[in-house]
């Protein structure tokens, strides 16, 4: 076993262990933190594969974005020190079965699939190459998915604004009522 292998197994163990911890812990905030470690482990595997750009994007998007979002929603809804209720045994068994089925499906797919070796030369992942590939319209270019995703994001943004605006109308009169009451007291 070379040093490189050792590092891979270390990273893989890290991912799996924290993924398991993340679903088994009863502290919701800890679950988010374990998820964070799993995601960092995956970023580590990308680094190990020398896909630095994807690794960095993984950290920016998942760690800096998604996990922070999850933590914020925990802040707004949960209370420190509280544990989630224990799950019932039948639920646990059902969840385990589903997970196993999914895992088996994936493994079967992987083993049945014949991976073809390509003779295309991989591009060197410099920013310039990635940028050109991302906006290329010829075969192997990613312009279409890139634009589709950006439309999706735009839709999500507009949706957020709409939700935020609607909620505000409901809350505002309530606050005014409160201040009126206080005026009466003072």
């Amino acid at each position: 076993m070379t040093g490189s292998d050792i590092i891979f197994y270390l990273l893989a163990t890290l991912c799996v262990v924290f993924a398991l911890l993340s679903v088994t812990t009863r502290h919701i905030f800890r679950a988010a933190i374990y998820l964070l470690f799993t995601l960092i482990g995956i970023a580590g595997i990308y680094f190990w594969l020398q896909y630095e750009f994807i690794a960095a994007v993984q950290i920016v998007v998942y760690v800096g974005g998604i996990v922070v979002l999850i933590i914020f929603s925990i802040f707004l809804t949960q209370q420190t020190g509280e544990q989630l209720p224990k799950q019932k045994l039948d639920r646990k068994i059902f969840a385990a079965l589903v997970v196993f089925a999914g895992f088996a499906l994936t493994m079967v797919q992987i083993y049945q699939h014949t991976f073809i070796e390509t003779d295309e030369i991989a591009i060197t992942p410099t920013v310039e190459n990635i940028g050109k590939k991302m906006l290329a319209v010829d075969s192997g270019g990613y312009a279409l998915p890139f634009e589709v995703i950006s439309i999706l994001l735009l839709a999500a943004l507009i949706g957020c604004i709409v939700i935020a605006l609607r909620e505000k109308k409901n809350i505002e009169p309530q606050i005014q009522d409160d201040t009126e009451e206080h005026k009466g007291i003072v």
Binding site: F29, I33, L36, I40, E52, F53, A56, V57, I59, V60, V63, G64, V67, V68, I71, I74, F75, T80, G81, P125, T126, V127
Partner: peptide, 27 residues
């Protein structure tokens, strides 16, 4: 590494996690 500055801005975004963690865990 060939993504030097991106690496810095990516990793520094983990920084906020430690602050959020400290704030939450302090009760």
């Amino acid at each position: 590494l060939n993504i030097g500055v991106l690496f810095v801005s990516a990793v520094s975004s983990i920084m906020v996690i430690s602050i959020l963690m400290a704030g939450w865990a302090s009760n």
